[in-house]
């Protein structure tokens, strides 16, 4: 509802009216910021990242800046979007920093005026221009993929799928597990990309394969690890890899049609109850140290170009990825959810 009215309002503005970027000057972490943040003593971090990465990252921040407690509010990106809309509509100010796996949300939030432009020197110097908002309202925190994967104990490598279309083979019926675009931003973003490349007919056929429908993109890796299903149709790549590195017999498959690419923007909320701690957390996550922490723990692809990707993971450049299109996702998200629910019945 809100999306559409605002879209209408935006269409009235002359295109190209903005010539100069509205981005504020780049800042660094100053002792004054740390001091002010410590006075606030807490910060809330809304994220869709798996708890096994988000919580340790929060603890690393707490260790670096003693006296500031991080409350991690993790749920699926689509749920976050819903919660933030309800909380803002009811004038509940709780969110300090928001980070989501659905980049389209940041377009909406920026237009609503919910985001506080904030640029750090790390962002200005080390983040590629296409990975950050020209007005400094948000910046990509990290990138991950939504590949397929299988449990080696349950599927022999020669029987493993190589392409999305392979999954339609009757031999995979009842063996597939899949996340939900009504919950997960990763799956929402991936669904838009796959539907664009393969058409909705692919999903209609897939729905006949007795797919086990879970919610989060973080769950297919866990269902594979438990041995509950043999093949994951989608899911967060870093969790497949983390399980594999723990010794779980999982093989990641980058489908021949291309792998959905998901950026994970982050922003400081304008109504942040702890504005200084919010800036500090944001700045630290985008710094070399914060980025290295995420990369070392999870092997996601860092937004900060100074930080190297994790050794042992395939470099992003070596993978054929699908084009991410947040603008299109923003326009069609409701339609995608409705179509998906009709096809998969949940």
């Amino acid at each position: 509802m809100r999306r559409r009215t605002l879209l209408g309002a935006a269409a009235l503005l002359p295109f190209g009216a903005r010539i100069v970027s509205a981005a504020p000057p780049a800042e660094t972490i100053t002792p004054a910021l740390i001091e002010a943040a410590k006075k606030e003593g807490k910060v809330s971090y809304y994220t869709a990242m798996d708890l096994s990465v988000a919580e340790p990252m929060a603890k690393a921040f707490e260790a670096k800046f003693p006296g500031i407690k991080v409350a991690v509010e993790r749920t699926g990106a689509e749920r976050l979007f819903n919660r933030l809309a309800q909380e803002t509509a009811s004038n509940i100010k709780r969110c300090d920093v928001v980070n989501s796996s659905d980049a389209a949300h940041f377009i909406t939030w920026k237009r609503e005026g919910w985001l506080q432009p904030y640029v750090t020197v790390d962002i200005a110097e080390n983040v590629a221009p296409e990975m950050r908002d020209p007005d400094g309202a948000f910046a990509n925190q990290r990138t991950h993929l939504s590949p397929m994967a299988y449990n080696i104990g349950l599927v022999k490598p020669e029987d493993a799928p190589k392409a999305f279309n392979d999954l339609l083979d009757p031999k995979y019926a009842g063996k597939l597990v899949k996340g939900h675009p009504g919950y997960s931003g990763t799956i929402m973003t991936a669904t838009q990309q796959v539907a664009r490349e393969l058409g909705w007919g692919y999903f209609e056929k897939l729905a006949k394969q007795k797919v086990m429908q879970v919610q989060s993109a973080t769950e297919p890796p866990k269902k594979l690890e438990a041995g509950e299903r043999a093949v994951a149709v989608d899911g967060s790549d870093y969790l497949f890899w983390m399980a594999r590195e723990r010794g779980v017999p999982i093989e990641v498959v980058y489908p021949v049609e291309g792998t959905p690419l998901i950026s994970n923007p982050m922003a400081v909320f304008k109504a942040a109850p702890n504005p200084n701690a919010a800036r500090l957390l944001f700045a630290w996550i985008m710094s070399g140290e914060g980025q290295e922490f995420i990369v070392n723990l999870s092997g996601q692809y860092p937004a900060n170009l100074k930080v190297k990707a994790k050794a042992g993971r395939p470099p992003l450049s070596s993978i054929k990825t699908l084009r991410e299109d947040p603008v299109e996702v923003e326009k069609t998200a409701d339609e995608i959810k409705a179509k998906y629910a009709r096809i998969f019945k949940v």
Binding site: E73, I92, K222
Partner: peptide, 23 residues
């Protein structure tokens, strides 16, 4: 519930949706 007023049952439900069965 909202994020500030989460109770145990809702937390368990949240964790269920991301498959964290151990917790």
């Amino acid at each position: 519930f909202t994020s500030e007023t989460k109770v145990l049952s809702v937390l368990i439900f949240d964790l269920k949706e991301s498959g964290d069965v151990g917790a």
